[in-house]
């Protein structure tokens, strides 16, 4: 799973995800992609599940690019523990995704295969998504 090699601080504030993506909103590497339409945190595990679904559906043909990186440590307190006594332990890594962000790109497969692979991957993600193609690539 994706995670940073090292970080300056172990824990981060939760924060909120406001606004729209200001970069990474257009296809750069592949011919087709999956665009976020709603904001949310996406965990490294969800990214990996989506990636695995795409590569399996494409029968390991073509190429896949992941355009998001889980660099936010998410902490959780253990079950049945009283509140207080400091912030919980970092449990997993997540990427903050704003609407408009291209999360995955694929290339080297026909449009219908790419579309189905990305739709299956979208089912693994906690956000609304949209299939996108390059300008001039007709439906």
């Amino acid at each position: 799973m994706l995670q940073p090699k090292r970080t300056r601080y172990r824990k981060q504030f939760k924060g909120r995800i406001h606004g729209l993506a200001k970069g990474g909103t257009t296809l750069t590497f592949g011919a087709y992609g999956l665009k976020a339409v709603s904001p949310n945190r996406i965990s490294a595990r969800q990214i990996e599940a989506a990636r695995r679904t795409i590569t399996r559906h494409m029968k390991r043909a073509g190429r896949v690019w992941i355009r998001i990186f889980p660099d936010v440590p998410i902490s959780q307190k253990p079950a049945e523990i009283r509140m207080g006594k400091g912030k919980g332990t970092p449990e997993f890594w997540a990427a903050r995704v704003k609407p408009g962000r291209i999360m995955f790109e694929v290339d080297g497969v026909p449009r219908d295969v790419a579309r189905q692979a990305l739709e299956l991957a979208a089912a693994k993600l906690p956000i609304e998504t949209r299939f996108v193609a390059r300008l001039g690539d007709e439906d």
Partner: peptide, 27 residues
Amino acid sequence: APTIEVEPEPEDEGAEGEGEEGEGEED
């Protein structure tokens, strides 16, 4: 060349274990 997918290890227990220990000491 075609990319050969390597199935990753099921869990990276070592890294998580270290984190928990560190947190325990701080608490």
